[in-house]
Simulated assay, not measured.
Amino acid sequence: MQHAQQASVPTYKLFGEQAPWPTPEMLHCESIAARSASHNWQITPHRHSGLFQILYLAAGSAEVHIDGNSNRLVAGQLMLVPQMCIHGFRFEKNAQGCVVTLAYPLIRKLAPQAGDALVGLTSPVACTLGDGEAYLPDAFEALETEYRGAAPHRNQLVESLLSVILLMVSRRCAQTQPPTALARRADCFPAFCELIEKHYAEHKPVSFYASKLGVTAAHLNSLCRQVVDRSALELIHERMILEAKRNLVYTSMTVSVVADTAGFADPAYFTRFFKREVGMSPREFRQQAGTLQV
């Protein structure tokens, strides 16, 4: 698929939908085929604001494209997609599985402690189910069935099944990080990530974020270095650069418009900033990105 000829990457509640969800729930659950089959088994690049997505592939395979990187997903694997990651899928025909999309407040409600590992994710994670997780496919199937149904105690069962899935997925995330980092992350790192998402284009100083979190700038910097080995300012800059990269790859915006979207009034200063962080100019990066195949 060539570069999207559009002003910006579409941000959906669900792929292809701009209207509000028909129910007040903070959850949506459906089979892979429910949406993909009508789109020739291909979901073009898009993103979600304020929504976390879990894709479970039960049968078949899929090409996954997230923020310009490509991976192959096979049966028995999960893909966790945090908010605002640009993602697209090309599924093998008749692929089977489940896609769960939920709002971040629901994660905090159902898994207030274990959920910190998920809320703090800023990049996608793929993982393979282990022998001790053999019941998870049944949990996904039961969740989809209960979600579509209207039997007694439907809401309680949906939340219980989703809690099991979230706890197991969170445990898998925890296994990839040192316990000390997770303990500190549970403090305020997820909240800092959410604040960056809201304010990165405003070019706020680290002191602004620290004040919002009720900590000192020095404490916030120390926390970030302990969790991800980068300073708070580096994380803010990374988010600014990521948005610029996404717009350069997935849209036809001019460099000047990309700069303005990232909060830079001076395109020349944006170009210098981008080159310092990335090692090449925005135009060179766009040329190197070339044609995306989704």
Rank of each mutant, 00 (worst) to 15 (best):
A259V: 09
F264C: 06
V257S: 13
L220W: 09
I241S: 02
V228F: 00
H237Q: 14
N247F: 07
C224V: 04
L248T: 00
N247Q: 08
I236L: 10
A259P: 05
A265T: 13
V249D: 05
P267S: 05
R230G: 06
E238Q: 04
H237W: 12
V257I: 14
R230S: 07
E234Y: 02
F270S: 11
E234M: 06
L242K: 12
A262P: 03
L248Q: 00
E243G: 02
T271H: 02
S252R: 10
V249Y: 03
T261W: 13
A244T: 00
T216A: 08
E238D: 15
Q226N: 11
V227H: 00
S256A: 15
V249C: 03
R239F: 02
A259W: 12
F264W: 11
L233C: 05
R246C: 01
T254A: 14
I241T: 10
L235A: 00
A232I: 03
S231D: 08
A262T: 01
V215H: 10
N221E: 09
M253I: 11
L242T: 15
L220A: 09
G214R: 11
R246Y: 04
A259C: 11
H237I: 10
G263Y: 00
A244V: 05
S231G: 11
F264R: 01
R230D: 08
R272F: 07
K245H: 13
D266C: 14
V249G: 02
N221Q: 07
Q226P: 08
F270H: 08
L223F: 03
R225V: 08
A259R: 12
R239V: 01
V255M: 15
L242P: 09
Y269D: 15
K245G: 07
R246M: 04
I241V: 13
M240L: 11
T261A: 13
V258M: 08
R246W: 00
A262S: 08
A259I: 12
L242V: 11
Y250R: 06
L248G: 01
C224T: 05
R246D: 02
Q226G: 05
R272G: 12
M253C: 13
L223I: 03
C224Y: 02
R272W: 05
N221L: 10
S256Q: 15
L248M: 02
A259D: 09
T261I: 12
A232M: 03
T261Q: 15
Q226L: 12
V257M: 15
F270Y: 06
S252P: 07
A244R: 01
N221F: 04
T261P: 09
M240S: 07
F264A: 07
G214E: 10
D260L: 14
F270I: 10
Y250K: 03
D229R: 12
L220Q: 09
V249K: 06
